[in-house]
Each structure stands twice: as C-alpha cells, then as structure tokens.
C-alpha cells in the first residue's frame, strides 16, 4: 500500500500501487469475462496463466485457489470473483475464507445483522 493511501485497520484500501503489483493477475482474471477465454482457462489453467505473464506467486495463488493470497498480492476483489464464478463459488464462500469461518457461519453472521466493528 502506498504512503499516500489512508491506512484503515483490518481493511483493504485498494490503490494504484496494489493495482500495479497485481497488473498481470487482474488482466488474466479480467479476460475471463469472455466465454471462450473461460473455456481456454478451464482446459489448461497453468498454460493460461503463463500466457498472461503471471508471476510464480500469482500463478500459484490462482492454481491453489488461495483467495486470501490473491487479494493480498494485488488482485482486486472484483477481478478475483471472476475466478470464483468459474468454481461456482459465491461471495459468501469467499467471505468465509477471508474471515476463517465456514460459509454457513459467515451467512449466519450477516443474517444476524452483519459483523459489527464499531
């Protein structure tokens, strides 16, 4: 995170620097909005990552479906969920992962009024 970006406890403030860091990753994920590209990706994930110039760390996070890692190394959440959509995972599934809960626990917390940090 750049020194110009406000620091907010426990929260990603996605900025230019993270976006620069995640450039290849986000570009690859963005390409998945195209149905032909989704097929190419599914057919050979590793080759698809290489073709898009992902770093070793980015590629590993994608192949491992390490959702948390992806958001930490410059993946924007709106790009990362394009991959989740391929796996038929919902934002609640990812919410569970980010918070160390099961999807059901995470959903239950939201249904109870959401998580309160006030």
């Amino acid at each position: 995170m750049s020194s110009y970006t406000p620091k907010v406890e426990g929260t990603h403030v996605y900025d230019t620097q993270m976006s620069r860091q995640g450039r290849a990753l986000n570009k690859m994920l963005y390409s998945l909005k195209n149905p032909e590209n989704r097929e190419l990706f599914i057919a050979d994930e590793s080759a698809y990552c290489d073709k898009h110039g992902l770093s070793a760390e980015q590629k590993l996070a994608v192949l491992d479906r390490d959702w948390k890692k992806m958001t930490e190394i410059g993946g924007s959440i709106f790009y990362v969920i394009k991959l989740a959509a391929i796996d038929k995972k919902s934002m609640q599934d990812l919410g569970g992962v980010f918070t160390g809960m099961s999807t059901e626990q995470f959903k239950a917390e939201l249904k109870a009024g959401g998580r309160n940090f006030g």
Partner: peptide, 22 residues
C-alpha cells in the same frame, strides 16, 4: 511511479477528475 501517484492523489484531492493510465 511514486511521483505519479503523489501527483494523482493531490490532483484528485483538489477536484481534478484524472484518469489513471497503468
């Protein structure tokens, strides 16, 4: 990149509606 970001943030803060080219 560092100076770019500094300029960008300051211009947006002053109400200039910049487009960012990565």
């Amino acid at each position: 990149a560092e100076l770019s970001e500094h300029i960008l943030v300051n211009l947006v803060d002053e109400g200039f509606d910049m487009t960012v080219l990565q």
